[in-house]
Design a protein around this nucleic acid. Structure first.
Lengths: 149, 149
DNA sequence: CCTAATCCTGTGCCCGGCTCACAGGTCAAG
DNA sequence: CTTGACCTGTGAGCCGGGCACAGGATTAGG
């Protein structure tokens, strides 16, 4: 419980896995954000371990919140970058979430369509028998299934 | 229009981009399936180009159909492998699509939840102003948004 | 004090399913 | 023969981390 300068204080610098556990994410994820320069832990000279303080914890919480809202890791870098230059990142945030939401809608309808095809296939195949492959047919289930709706 | 043996015949061996265009996919995609050994074009000795015949075309159509149904590339390898050993791949196909469908459902509900969060954020932010970052706040929109519904 | 065993870390490579960059070869026109 | 447009194979890159591994740090035991 001594700092490098010898003064008594509550321990604030934690190591990667301790912080990860506190945030409910994996150590690898924390390392990843460290690697790409989104957090800047201090390297402990004596053992080479990285030590994370409150600032890093807060930063990681921010990253988590943003990820939950569908921002990409790159988006978050942009947002952080603007904030660090003292600029309000809000306009960018608004613009980006519009984009990401649009993409999510897109992705959503593709997922629905895929699910529909898959369900149709499962239904269709339920009353069809297995068949050994022939020279020009790998799997008749797949090859004879055509989705037309 | 001469074969290597000098006989006259309709050209059947095509090159990567010709085949890709015919199938409506990218040349890179065809190259990818070639690289991982799902199709085996013949290497033209004189120019090093790979030449694709009907067999490869059929194989690629099969791969496309399977991908459309949500099978992973690895699934497809397994299916092809079984078929090539003369075994009916149908049981595997049925098992795999059940798995993939389940995953798609999972993914689907995650996508819905994400969309809901995003929409809620957009709504919430609509009547909130921009704010410059402070020492302990990167973006108040993101940090003050809590999804509780 | 030393040793052995266990824990923990940083680093670098790996994943899917392609896509892209690039160096160099090919082919038709002149 | 040369120019230049086109085409090819190969290797690397993408996201968002996950995983394996070697080796240092720390602890238990003596």
């Amino acid at each position: 419980m001594y700092s490098r300068s010898g003064r008594y204080f509550q321990e604030r610098e934690v190591r990667v896995n301790q912080l990860a556990q506190k945030l409910g994410i994996s150590g690898d994820t924390v390392r990843y954000y460290t690697r790409i320069g989104y957090v800047h832990p201090v390297k402990n000279k004596s053992n080479g371990y990285k030590e994370y303080g409150e600032k890093e914890e807060h930063r990681l919480r921010f990253i988590q919140s943003a990820r939950q809202l569908g921002f990409t890791v790159e988006d978050i870098g942009q947002i952080i970058g603007e904030a660090e230059k003292g600029k309000a990142p809000c306009p960018t945030v608004r613009r980006l979430i519009d984009q990401r939401l649009h993409e999510t809608e897109q992705h959503f309808s593709e997922t629905i369509a895929l699910r529909k095809r898959m369900q149709a296939a499962v239904n269709d195949w339920h009353r069809k028998p297995d068949k050994a492959p022939t020279g020009d047919m790998i799997c008749h289930l797949i090859e004879n299934f055509s989705y037309t709706k």
